[in-house]
Amino acid sequence: MAKIRGSIVVNVERCKGCEVCMVSCPTGTIAMAKEVNGKGYNYAFPANPDLCIGCASCAMGCLDGVIAVYKTKI
């Protein structure tokens, strides 16, 4: 059976670190970075990229539209 792999790209400079994507991710892919962006927010990043299934829950819930989701079968 083909496995679905996903990946997210976060526009780090626009992220405000609200953590809503981290909570809505069903697989625990997303975590908040220890570093901060130019505005001083701990931005979201894919800490466990292998777990991503490309469901776009994070992007649907993202309040600033900073997440792009990619999905493919491998």
Binding site: G54, A56, A59, M60, V66, I67, A68, Y70, T72
Partner: peptide, 15 residues
């Protein structure tokens, strides 16, 4: 390692 997934044809969602 995720560069093979992040391609324009695989885009599932963006604003």
């Amino acid at each position: 390692g995720i560069r093979e997934i992040v391609k324009p044809e695989n885009l599932a969602y963006r604003k």
